[in-house]
Nucleic acid binder design. Structure first.
Length: 569
RNA sequence: CGGGGUGUAGCGCAGCCUGGUAGCGCAUCUGGUUUGGGACCAGAGGGCCGGGGGUUCGAAUCCCUCCACCCCGACCA
């Protein structure tokens, strides 16, 4: 491709509305442009990279025995009514009505469509197992799209769905996909970590997320410094960590205007770990739907709401209003477990803890000497706190660490939560009708593009790995001489004939501009044709990372090929 | 939806407080001089100052309202 004809508008300044490095660089280097909130154009360079990522994913999925197909983006509403998700999914599902008044939606995921397809064709256990996948655009009307490709509303996803005659077969495929994902992210050159995860809205039994480690990641993951244990903090089992208080009788104490745990601890000169924070929530979904509950944790801990939701078998929780707190006998700012008229859950850490300080449910009052085991005989305990760095690993006792991650993949063992309502049935070995058991496996392909940039960049721009770069070679012609043009033409032809992707910067620009653009775009190899080296009969070849060699004009192709292992020579 | 912020040329910004009909840098176009790390000189084009309403002789500027975008929280690949 000749740069003079190529549509890759680069920007000198960072766009003001971009926050994270991948968003800034992908905009500046001419890979993407925003169309509307969370929706992007992939310019020619961006599409080239996206296709390369897709190809890695496709090759590994095919190798793992999955089959590619393509399903529609528009899906009929009835299918979602059948699975029960028309009600459950919420406003993230963009619902549309056609001219006939027929209700459809834009697919945020494809369990319904694939189940519908498979249920029509599946007859015998002999057809199983089967793993079908697609690489396709999804639409989720996200509350807050942000960070460019990292959280779009429309995005490219690889989604795979497997069907099995029994649990053991599903487990085998789950492991197969787990290993496949490790291969994919390794081939993409990423530092990543698989972690145990919540199953969330998709549902099912087992689930792992794959996180690319990056400061800009939106997720917090907890991982052991000594063993392999790693989990999303939403999920990570936390150690016991009982505060070391002295037993005492319960007593009331004045704490004027001290509402936060920090204030109370400071006022009473107590260790903040001895405090009990009582958080009051309004529950939605599950057996406690619409009720108010209280959750108690240590003063220096954070409540992990997802854990609370799971403990209640609910779908969500929301901080209760002042009125709701009052209705159960609490006083905002001075809420404590003693005397509340709602269901109360205590974090495991408080089991056996003594000499605690808690709100007294009276203005400007706390109580001291609380002993949950003694004073709350029918207390319920659950793991509610968020894991902190330094906590003991639940598997080996080693120290836990926290890192930020970008979720780029997620595997679920679904069981029959979709196949049952969608009636994906087959005749088993005994001749009986049986429901297929399912797994599903997602990879955020366009998000991966951002994740790679988050890990591969420097002060000059993007630094693509060789196998993902939109062009492997930037041919930079600085010479205006006839010999220089001729040499450039020759190299350009040779590389094209050899199947090497080359962007020939034939623009009438000064050398600095061309270097800056090639570096900003992140092209891995730069071939420089300039009068200075031409006079010595050589051409300069530099890598994006700085190494440089000089070779004779006739040796350029060979040298480039040696630097591009597996480039299709 | 709640909290904070921003909308002025393709990009980055000033002007607004204290109303007088729009400016700077980069980019673009023309001519010239340059040419191994984002050149220089001369000239030029490009703006319903986010939209609507109001106040005023007069609004980018003051008031009301709507919209869009960004950041922090609940969603997820």
């Amino acid at each position: 491709m000749r740069y003079s004809r190529f549509f890759a508008p680069t920007l000198r300044d960072d766009p003001a509305d971009a926050e994270v490095i991948s968003h800034k660089l992908l905009l500046r280097a001419g890979y993407i442009r925003r169309v509307t909130s969370g929706v992007y154009d992939f310019l020619p360079m961006g599409l080239r990279v996206l296709r390369k990522i897709e190809q890695v994913v496709r090759e590994e999925m095919n190798r793992a025995g999955a089959q590619e197909l393509l399903m529609p983006m528009v899906q009929p509403g009835e299918l979602w009514e059948k699975s029960g998700r028309w009600e459950k999914y919420g406003p993230e599902l963009l619902r549309i009505t056609d001219r006939h008044g027929h209700i459809s939606c834009l697919g945020p995921t494809h369990e319904e469509v694939i189940c519908d397809l498979v249920s029509r064709e599946l007859r015998s256990y002999k057809q199983l197992p089967m793993n079908l996948y697609q690489i396709q655009s999804k639409f989720r009307d996200e509350i807050r799209p942000r960070f460019g490709l990292m959280r779009g509303r429309e995005f490219v996803m690889k989604d795979a769905y497997s069907f099995h005659a029994d649990e053991a077969c599903l487990e085998a495929e789950y492991r197969n996909m787990f290993e496949t994902y490790k291969r994919i992210f390794t081939r993409l050159g990423l530092k990543f970590r698989p972690v145990e995860a919540d199953t969330g809205a998709i549902g099912g039994s087992a689930s792992h997320e794959f996180h690319v480690l990056a400061e800009s990641g939106e997720d917090l993951i907890a991982h052991c410094s000594a063993c392999e244990y790693a989990a999303n903090v939403e999920m990570a089992e936390s150690g016991r960590n009982i505060p070391a208080g002295e037993p005492a009788g319960m007593a009331g104490v004045n704490t004027p205007n001290a509402t936060s745990a920090e204030d109370v601890a400071a006022y009473l000169k107590a260790d903040i770990a001895q405090l009990v924070k009582t958080l009051v929530y309004h529950v939605s979904g599950g057996p406690e739907d619409g009720k108010i509950i209280a959750a108690c944790i240590r003063g220096d801990d954070q409540l992990q709401e997802i854990k609370l939701v799971r403990a209640l078998h609910a779908t969500g929780v929301e901080m209760a209003s002042d009125e709701e707190i009052k209705a159960v006998g609490g006083v905002t700012g001075f809420v404590g477990p003693v005397g509340l008229s709602c269901r109360r859950l205590f974090d495991d850490t408080l089991r056996g803890a003594v000499g605690l300080v808690a709100g007294a449910n009276r203005r400007d009052m706390h109580i001291t000497g609380l002993d949950v085991g003694r004073d709350e005989s029918c207390a319920e305990f659950a793991d509610l706190r968020q894991t902190r760095a330094g906590d003991g690993c639940p598997k080996c006792g080693g120290a836990m660490e926290l890192s930020r991650g970008i979720e780029v993949g997620h595997v679920f063992a679904l069981g029959i939560c979709y196949s049952e309502p969608m009636e994906v049935m087959f005749q088993n070995r005994e001749g009986k009708r049986s429901t297929a058991t399912m797994g599903c496996y997602g990879i955020g392909v366009s998000r991966l593009m951002a994740a790679v940039v988050e890990q591969c960049n420097d002060e000059n721009g993007i630094a693509w790995p060789l196998n993902l770069a939109p062009f492997q070679v930037a041919l930079i012609t600085m010479s205006k001489s006839e010999a220089g043009i001729e040499a450039s033409e020759k190299i350009y032809r040779q590389l094209l004939d050899a199947g090497i992707e080359v962007l020939w910067d034939d623009r009438k620009e000064r050398p600095g501009v061309k270097f800056k653009d090639a570096e900003l775009m992140g092209l891995p190899l730069h071939i420089i044709v300039g009068d200075r080296s031409l006079e010595n009969g050589v051409i300069e070849i530099r890598s994006r990372s700085g190494e440089k060699v000089e070779v004779a004009l006739d040796a350029v192709l060979q040298e480039v090929q040696s630097l591009l292992p597996g480039s299709g020579i």
